Simulated scan of single mutants.
Amino acid sequence: MNKRESIRAARQIIDEIHDMRIFDLIGEYVRFGKTTKVIAPIKVPSVNTNALSLTYAQAVANIFGYNIEDRVFQVTSEKRDRKIDTMLRLCFPPVFTGEIEAGADYIVVDDVFTTGGTLAGLRGYIHRHGGNVIVCSTLAAGTRVTREATRHDQRQMGVALAPTNDRIRDLRNKLGDEYRAVDSVFCEGLRYGLQQLTEQEARFVSSQARTIRTYRGSIAEWFERGIIEARSSGI
């Protein structure tokens, strides 16, 4: 399938599955009078194959009359792109490069919300370079995400990117006296701590902690081994 056919197929998918009310929700976050751009976590044109993200970005831009930010790209990572294992995705957060307009507002869009790591990574990149993310939107979400989502007419209309207060409490309860040790393992091995996880990533850590405790193992040691194995794994 060539580029033109991919875009045509992407437009058809968007028309079929997207709820127009999403545009109303996005509009609630728009700050009129501010320079606002739409951005998707795409790779450089020579390797970009995600027509859905770019086409959705164009649809949002057209609705609101904004431009697409086309100077920022996700640096490719084969280990992240080819794996769906949550531990591997934790160990290989997305890396971005390119120019962000300081002071501008950004609407971040993507095709599917799974663990939220890509959205969180792009949001962090924009904020570190002086931009401001006002809202994130995706075409769809994974099954695990939608189970906990707010629903209208059986359609998912909003999920948490950052951990909720309930999730943080659950994480602290599951980790117990190992909370600080696990946080240190993440900070040392991944350069970000438990507070920087997404809601879905925190859910994963909490679930693993419960399983590890069942076998009376050290949660911190388990994650330390997992990080080392993931970082040293081949394709």
Rank of each mutant, 00 (worst) to 15 (best):
N67I: 05
G124A: 13
R231A: 12
N62W: 04
G193R: 07
W222G: 02
T214M: 14
R128H: 12
G217Q: 14
A10D: 03
G121H: 11
I26D: 06
F23P: 06
G142K: 11
T118C: 14
D110N: 00
T198Q: 09
T76I: 12
A141H: 10
G189M: 09
Q12N: 08
L122N: 06
V135N: 06
A9C: 13
T146D: 07
Y56D: 00
V109N: 06
V145S: 09
T49R: 12
A102F: 08
V205F: 08
V38S: 03
R21N: 14
I227F: 06
I13F: 02
V44K: 13
L52F: 03
A104L: 09
N67E: 12
N50L: 00
V75S: 05
V44S: 09
A209P: 13
K3C: 14
T115Y: 05
T86I: 14
V159Y: 03
N132D: 10
E101G: 10
S53C: 04
I84W: 05
T97A: 08
I26Y: 00
S77G: 11
D183F: 04
V47N: 05
T49N: 05
F204I: 01
V185D: 08
R4K: 14
S77Q: 11
T76F: 12
V159A: 08
H129Q: 08
D177Y: 13
R213T: 14
A57L: 04
I126F: 03
I13Y: 05
A102L: 06
D170M: 11
Q12P: 05
E201R: 09
F92V: 02
G189P: 09
A230R: 12
F92A: 02
S184W: 11
I63Q: 06
P41A: 02
V185S: 09
A141I: 05
G121Q: 12
T138V: 01
S218F: 01
G27S: 02
A59K: 07
A140H: 02
A160D: 13
R231I: 13
T138P: 08
G98T: 12
V30H: 02
T114S: 13
I17L: 10
F113D: 04
T55L: 07
S46G: 06
R128L: 10
I168P: 06
I39L: 12
S184H: 13
L122E: 05
Q200H: 06
A181Y: 09
R11T: 09
R128I: 05
Q208S: 15
D110E: 01
V205Y: 11
R144M: 00
Y125K: 13
Y179G: 05
T211W: 11
C187W: 10
E101F: 01
P163H: 03
D15V: 08
A202G: 07
Y179M: 09
V182E: 03
R155F: 13
S207F: 14
F204Q: 03
K83E: 12
P45G: 07
T55F: 00
L175C: 10
F204D: 00
G189I: 01
V135S: 08
T138D: 01
V75F: 02
T115S: 14
M1H: 15
E178F: 07
